[in-house]
Design a protein around this nucleic acid. Structure first.
Lengths: 235, 235
DNA sequence: CTGACGCGGTTGATTAGATCACTAGTTCAA
DNA sequence: TTGAACTAGTGATCTAATCAACCGCGTCAG
């Protein structure tokens, strides 16, 4: 009984692939409206509920978005190879530490790459996100957590490699709501901001070692803060 | 018209979450059989096609597997947070280079972590995968490509962090079939094997710098080999 | 006794058709 | 001109039926 074994490909799976081909053949960008569910069902000569099953597969991946009463749209993830799974296990203390430690391994070399590349657009976006965070520190503290996560995404994007951006995007978004709550209770917002400043300066200056070290130090501090609250004791 | 915006949560989405909760409440492991589609529909008081839509979402993520004539099973990805999207764009030359360059950023520090941790099980699995690759080099060359990808997965697992393992798992599996074809035509199998040997020795010896450098060199060589074939000219 | 084959029951897969809920665009009235 | 109401289009969900695949059990043959 090897449950992981793919036996025969279902029609829903084939329809999902067919729809993706259609998107790419027509050069549709994220946000573009596609044929309706009924039209797609007619085009592929299947029943509407069967087409819906295929579209649900794509929806899970963020490749399409079904809007009730409006239509079917191309999703943001249409070109993504790596996504995060919104239907995975509940976040445990151990898992959060695992996640942050993984980020501590991955993100410093990404920051170093960003400092190497020094892409003008990427750097501008990073600086803009830092400015946004500063504003949030002053008058929109409830948004600060997501802007801080976005800072890390901008950092990965500044490395100029879409796969790296997708990877970081995926891991920072894991259990986003739960992270929000934990960071709200135990984060240190002004220290985080200073550390983000340090990272940004290093990247803008093209100082590879400083970018690496600042990112590593920052994530180490986050890990220590989370550890200090003895997360396992609260479960 | 913000297509990426989540308006109202559908029943299919809620059912997907409900099924995941059921899996975790009952402590079901990958491979375990769950209630049938009809039973799940009854349990959640919805119609069968609606439950099927929810299950298709989970199936896309590898959280469940629907086996025709048999039942619904828990999938391998039930605990995964990061997965690869099988429904993304066609692999282009540029995209493959992007992918390999991302791996060159991420995998060396992961190898260094593996050399730091020196987990006995992880190291054993790495050595076993290397031995398997050697065997394939002699008498099963058609399988060598997947075993070589598995080597990288074993390397990430040896770092002892599930998120890192998931990340590497996801990126090496991207466009696996297409990678197979490209590596078959342009890879250098005996050189790859030697480089994998070098990486393994460094990890087993706990030589952090060597593990980092050997992994980086290996991936650089793969990138150069792919570049040398002028991939864009072939499209 | 063991292995292979066939059958029946269970379960997933797909269809057809209907009704309900939401959205976007248009028209009308203040 | 603006806001509200209406309508048509579209997704969401349901009911009910039929078809296809799998699994377990029993029987038969070697």
């Amino acid at each position: 009984m090897p449950a992981g074994e793919v036996s025969r490909r279902t029609l829903a799976d084939e329809l999902a692939s067919g729809v993706v081909e259609l998107i790419h053949e027509n050069g549709l960008e994220p946000g573009a409206q596609m044929d309706t569910v009924r039209e797609l069902a007619r085009r592929f000569d299947v029943a509407v509920p069967t087409m819906r099953e295929g579209l649900r597969r794509l929806e899970a991946m963020g490749v399409v978005v079904l809007r009730h009463g409006s239509g079917v749209y191309v999703g943001e993830n249409v070109r993504r190879s790596v996504v995060h799974n919104p239907h995975s296990q509940v976040l445990t203390g151990e898992r959060l530490i695992d996640l942050l430690e993984a980020r501590r391994v991955i993100e410093p070399p990404i920051a170093a790459t960003a400092a190497t590349v020094r892409d003008p657009d990427g750097c501008a976006r990073l600086a803009a996100k830092l400015a946004e965070a500063e504003q949030c520190l002053n008058d929109a503290r409830d948004r600060l957590w997501i802007v801080n996560l976005d800072f890390h995404r901008a950092l990965a994007q500044a490395a100029g490699n879409t796969v790296l951006a997708e990877v970081v995007d995926s891991i920072v978004l894991v259990h986003a709501e739960e992270q929000k709550e934990i960071l709200r209770l135990h984060g240190n917002e002004s220290e985080d901001f200073q550390e983000h400043q340090r990272i940004t300066r290093a990247v803008l200056d093209g100082d590879i070692d400083a970018a690496f070290q600042a990112t590593r130090d920052h994530l180490s501090n986050v890990i220590e803060a989370i550890r200090a609250r003895d997360l396992n004791g609260e479960q």
